[in-house]
């Protein structure tokens, strides 16, 4: 399997649309086209092997199912995962002769995707830094009161950042990377230490994604309880995610009512006791 210039260019355009500050906006871009599952669909269609594309996308989506970017800190770049990692993983899966939906193919895809995704953070910082130039133009427009220029600053100029940090890297890496992947097979045997390690890392990395999310909601040991209740429902009772969500709603409702009851009751109780105290004093005065 090889990737032609035309195929590589289509992937390049999708990379520009889908990155974290992407040109399709964050709902359609980052959160739709940027998801590896959707990337797998697109790459599968572009490269003409839907099944391998989806399978690689599913595998990589698991790693990044819970990727959050609090305050613009990025641990992986999804445009690189979805539009550089998935095509290269597809080539690698073909080169290694693995079945598209096998566990080994999935592990290979995961390792490949996370490697490219981690290196790809360079692209994220590159885009964000180049955008400073357009923002500078924007500030001068605001000073002069030429507000219409803001539209070009927000919707037009960033395409230039993406030409350099999304389009060109994607085209070059997918086109030439495929021959590198072919060489990989001979260089690294499957039962060697490097490949075993790479596969194991692929299985461990999803823990980081989950942990980043937990960091947002867990402050102390007690906050871990909902997490472990959900974990137990799925791991021991084999409930699926929708069922877990439905059960969680009843707990959410109880906590909400409880909190509201506490906050609305506290005031009257305090006032009430104050009243009785003042009443007593008044009585004594009399």
């Amino acid at each position: 399997m090889t990737i032609s210039w035309i195929q590589a260019s289509i992937l390049g355009i999708f990379a520009s649309l889908s990155s974290m500050p992407g040109m399709a906006g964050s709902t359609i871009g980052n959160y739709t086209l940027g998801r590896p599952l959707v990337g797998g669909l697109v790459c599968g269609l572009v490269l003409g092997d839907l099944k391998t594309g989806i399978a690689a996308g599913v595998a990589m989506q698991l790693v990044y199912i819970a990727l959050v970017t609090p305050g613009g800190t990025v641990s992986a770049d999804l445009r690189a995962v979805s539009y550089i990692g998935i095509p290269l993983a597809m080539v690698a899966i073909h080169a290694q002769g693995l079945a598209a939906t096998s566990g080994n193919a999935a592990d290979l895809a995961k390792s490949m995707g996370t490697l490219v995704g981690t290196v790809g953070t360079v692209l994220f910082y590159g885009t964000a830094t180049m955008n400073l130039v357009w923002q500078h133009i924007g500030w001068r427009a605001v000073e002069k009161g030429e507000f219409k220029k803001l539209y070009a600053v927000d919707w037009g100029y960033p395409w230039i950042s993406h030409l350099f940090f999304s389009f060109i890297p994607t085209v070059l890496m997918t086109h030439f990377g495929s021959s590198a992947v072919h060489a990989l097979r001979t260089a690294l045997p499957m039962d060697g230490i490097p490949m075993k390690t790479l596969f194991t890392v692929g299985a461990l990395l999803p823990c980081v994604g989950i942990a980043i999310l937990l960091k947002q909601i867990v402050e102390g040991p007690i906050d871990f309880i909902p997490f472990f209740v959900g974990f137990t429902f799925a791991a021991s009772l084999k409930l699926n995610l929708v069922s877990v969500t439905v059960i969680s709603l009843i707990f959410a409702m109880i906590f909400y009512k409880l909190d509201m009851a506490i906050s609305t009751n506290r005031q009257p109780i305090l006032n009430g006791s104050n009243d009785t105290i003042t009443d007593d004093e008044e009585e004594e005065d009399i």
Binding site: L214, F227, F228, A234, L239, V244, T245, A252, M253, D259
Partner: peptide
């Protein structure tokens, strides 16, 4: 607080289902 509870439980479910 209620949303964090839903979030915590669902994330636990996600972890048990999709991470091994």
């Amino acid at each position: 607080k209620a949303i964090a509870t839903i979030g915590g439980m669902v994330v636990g479910g996600v972890a048990a289902t999709w991470v091994t």
